[in-house]
């Protein structure tokens, strides 16, 4: 029994439930004033910390601002939400609802994606209004922003899936990874000036490919990697993060 539902019907049901989770998270957690303040202020604060005093033109700075915005906005809130919901047992509601674990993870990530996209509108308007920002290749620019939001939201949810009810236990390993990524992805140090091993490591960082796609979208010279490779890298990173996240949750279910 139980196999009498068409794949399309099942997919439709899974998608609508994932969206329900995502939309609920946006309303409850992401649109709260502290989260909005964080989402808007933090990337700008980090941006100014590392760019003021350096002899960079605004066209060189804007891709860094975009990359940082999607990186921090999409990956930060999810890891706070899941341990909180584990503690209040509201996470159990998803596990006992008729939907797959993957849909729960996608729903949770969806909120991060939407938040990342919304927040990235701010640097876009700042660049457009004050610095004559011009998007040369809309497709690459849009793919860069969108796929990066997916990848970083998935990364946040992956860390959030670590079996713990404590936010601290998630933030520590996550920042242990996130902060070094800033230094190997061309955000503060150009990839070209890294030693060859650093350049190799850099190619494994999804943030590198975010910056490459955004730079190419804005018509700025980027590290010489074909856009298709950057798109594939971001897609593969997202799949990997979703897969690891699902595995963590399966482990949780076996342990609980």
């Amino acid at each position: 029994m139980g196999g009498d539902m068409s794949i399309l019907t099942r997919l439709r049901k899974e998608a609508s439930r994932a969206w329900a989770i995502g939309w609920k998270d946006i309303r409850v957690y992401y649109l709260s004033p502290p989260t909005l303040m964080f989402g808007v202020m933090f990337p700008f604060a980090l941006f100014f910390t590392f760019t003021v005093g350096r002899s960079l033109s605004i066209t060189q700075m804007l891709p860094i601002l975009f990359s940082q915005t999607v990186f921090w906005a999409a990956s930060t809130v999810g890891p706070v939400v899941i341990p909180l919901e584990r503690r209040t047992k509201t996470f159990d509601r998803y596990l006992s609802a008729p939907m797959s674990l993957l849909s729960v993870i996608l729903g949770k990530s969806l909120a991060g994606v939407v938040f990342g996209l919304l927040v990235s509108v701010i640097p876009f308007f700042v660049g457009w209004l004050f610095f004559s920002l011009q998007v040369v290749d809309i497709l690459l620019f849009t793919l860069g922003i969108l796929l990066s939001c997916v990848a970083f939201a998935a990364m946040g949810i992956m860390f959030a899936s670590i079996p713990t009810e404590s936010v601290g236990n998630i933030m520590m390993p996550m920042n242990f990874i996130r902060i070094p990524l800033l230094f190997v992805s061309g955000i503060f140090i150009p990839i070209e000036s890294l030693p060859w091993i650093g350049q190799m490591v850099s190619l494994f960082s999804p943030l590198t490919h975010t910056l490459i796609l955004i730079r190419q979208g804005l018509g700025i010279a980027a590290y010489p990697v074909a856009p298709v490779i950057s798109v594939a890298a971001l897609l593969l990173s997202s799949l990997l993060f979703f897969f690891v996240s699902r595995q963590f949750h399966e482990i949780n279910k076996r342990r609980e």
């Binding site: 139980g2 539902m5 957690y29």
Partner: peptide
């Protein structure tokens, strides 16, 4: 089956856990 046909099984059940797990912000 709760493992192999979990979706169908869960569609037929309602669950009240030992804690009142409501969303406090809604």
């Amino acid at each position: 089956d709760i493992l192999h046909h979990a979706f169908a099984a869960k569609e037929r059940m309602g669950v009240v856990t030992d804690l009142s797990n409501v969303y406090n912000d809604l």
